[in-house]
Design a binder for these strands. Structure first.
Lengths: 119, 119
DNA sequence: CCTATATTCACCCTTATGGGTGAATATAAA
DNA sequence: TTTATATTCACCCATAAGGGTGAATATAGG
């Protein structure tokens, strides 16, 4: 509500909105890797991989260390914390829904039990 | 990694990647609202609002109840749970980073204390 | 110096966003 | 029945994604 131009969150959520990029993050969670190594792991070109990395860097989720001609990418999950915080506020809503669903199921089961006793 | 075409997560993260849509979700967290009501709360046209709502619906974050000519939108935070779960895996990484940073700061402080005693 | 490797730059193409306007549609109300 | 309201549909425009290819750049290694 207060927020309106939180471009930081924009970038983080955008970065995570693509399956290939999520897979790159998962890969980097195992160990650092170079651009070419990442490209080999996915069915897309080196150039395409490079572009995905740029989007991840923009979100701050990946850090680049240039060592000569090699660029070593490192996972930096930090920015996810802010995204989690934002979503945390909504936890009450889905947990409330689940609780309501549970209540419904339990009441329904008791109802059914009463019915079966009458028969 | 295992996942690769999780279009559900794609849709949820995409829906949350825009400030206006995040604001709409925050608004609906207060109470249900009609399309026109939402449009009045934001500096964009009714049509643009309608499009944002479609994207939120695609992600399952908003539900529509048509009552005559009025469409009542309801927040459905459920799909955020899956997104949270996905991000939860990465918590270790940013918490680890924070812990490492804390260690560094503490050691640095002690170092500085030793130095000031020597002077 | 020459060559191979690692990445990016500069493009092309297609589709999706994000914004707009005006018209069509559906329903409520006079 | 006519009119007003609520929402969407059909477009237009600009920009960003997501994919590709070929060339340029930078550095490592003979």
């Amino acid at each position: 509500m207060g927020e309106y131009k939180n471009t930081k969150l924009d970038d983080v959520f955008t970065a995570m909105s693509d399956g290939t990029r999520r897979a790159i993050l998962a890969r980097l969670a195992q160990s650092d890797a170079r651009v070419t190594e990442l490209a080999n792991d996915f069915p897309i070109s080196l150039n395409s991989t490079s572009k995905h990395i740029r989007i991840l860097e923009r979100a701050g989720l990946v850090t680049r260390a240039v060592q000569g001609r090699e660029h070593v990418l490192t996972l930096n999950a930090g920015p996810m914390a802010e995204a989690m915080e934002w979503m945390e506020y909504y936890r009450q809503f889905w947990e409330h829904s689940l609780a309501a669903l549970e209540d419904f199921v339990i009441k329904k089961r008791k109802q059914d039990q009463r019915r079966s006793k009458k028969q």
